[in-house]
């Protein structure tokens, strides 16, 4: 029994399986969608989901929804490309939480200890939108096709500034290892050293996970559900959950490279790394909260407006943030 516990607490099992991997990602998925509905409802003077476990304000609504997705019949239309229609959602969901394997849960507690972990994470992040486009093409539906094309336009919009703003922090800390980047923020958090990159990255989280005001690919009032129009049952649950998982990964990354990771936790509490992991998780939750809070405030941008924001504003700002990092390094660094 103790052997099993020891095995699970090994970082190369714990990180993909428990935190920040599968188990936590799944619980966050259940919690964050409920929170999104509750927050949007509260701002709009409603109650939101309430009657599933009323004393806790409908807290297990998403479990009820999950059961519904599991037991609903997944309808596979006659004219779709069956292979892509079935496998693209699975790969999309898997790739969406795959980047968690390089995230450190505490000082020295990593599954893959690499000097290039930030690059690995950014590389893995670019894989999932391809499958959104593939399943949109395979659905053989005009709404899906339009949604997939919008997703494609947005990928060209957000990836360059996303990488530039993340790499500007690498320039600032002088390393590409996420653990070392957190250690470099021991005294001052990255958000105070390079606020420009922090703002750009936060906006790009909204674009890349299609949250309001950039919920353009899925635009329910225009193109039904965008790339996911033809999906039902558990497949719909997977494709809908994928963007929330991506939000989860990017929020944890934001907490690690901008919000100081497990600092300001004093060093004698950092080992064993449980408190450090909780610290990172709470900071990630704050970022997720901000991202889903936008649903209650903003309407949706048009696709051309979003691309214009990406290329005219965010790319120059991301390049500027690299120069800001260089300036900080020139003035003395971290």
């Amino acid at each position: 029994m103790m052997d099993l516990l020891d095995l699970i607490l090994q970082p190369w099992i714990f990180i993909p399986l428990i935190f920040p991997g599968l188990t936590t990602a799944f619980l966050v998925l259940l919690g964050i969608i409920w929170a999104e509905r509750k927050i949007a409802a509260k701002v709009q003077m409603r109650y939101g989901p309430l009657y599933v476990l009323k004393p806790l304000g409908g807290a297990i609504q998403m479990i009820a929804d999950l059961l519904r997705y599991l037991f609903a019949e997944p309808i596979i239309p006659k004219d779709v490309d069956k292979l892509t229609f079935i496998f693209a959602p699975l790969i999309l969901f898997g790739l969406s939480y795959l980047p968690t394997i390089v995230l450190p849960a505490g000082p020295g507690f990593t599954a893959i200890s690499s000097e290039m972990s930030l690059l690995i994470l950014l590389g893995l992040l670019t894989l999932s939108p391809v499958f959104t486009m593939i399943l949109a093409w395979g659905s053989n539906n005009k709404f899906s096709l339009i949604g997939g094309l919008r997703e494609g336009y947005l990928v060209t919009t957000y990836e360059i500034p996303l990488f530039l703003s993340a790499l500007s922090m690498a320039v600032l800390y002088g390393t590409l290892d996420i653990t070392a980047m957190v250690e470099a923020q021991k005294n001052v958090w990255g958000i105070f050293l390079n606020p420009l990159a922090a703002i750009v990255f936060l906006v790009l989280i909204l674009i890349s996970t299609s949250k309001f005001p950039f919920e353009i690919a899925e635009a329910e009032s225009e193109i039904v559900m965008g790339p996911f129009t033809e999906y039902s049952g558990i497949f719909y649950g997977l494709v809908m959950g994928a963007s929330y998982l991506k939000l989860y990964v990017l929020s944890l990354l934001y907490a690690l490279i901008f919000l100081g990771g497990w600092y300001p936790l004093p060093s004698f509490l950092q080992n064993p790394p449980f408190l450090a992991g909780i610290m990172v998780f709470v900071k990630g939750l704050v970022i997720m909260f901000i991202a889903i809070f936008m649903r209650a405030i903003y309407p949706r941008y048009r696709i051309d407006q979003a691309i214009q924001i990406g290329w005219h504003k965010l790319v120059p700002l991301a390049i500027l943030s690299i120069f800001l990092s260089l300036l900080v390094v020139y003035l003395g660094g971290v």
């Binding site: 927050i39 509260k42 701002v43 003077m45 409603r46 809070f293 209650a296 405030i297 903003y298």
Partner: peptide, 17 residues
């Protein structure tokens, strides 16, 4: 200002349900 308005409604208690 838009975000502040949203935050105000998040923490105030007007509910019309």
């Amino acid at each position: 200002r838009a975000i502040a308005t949203g935050a105000k409604y998040l923490f105030l208690k007007p509910r019309l349900t």
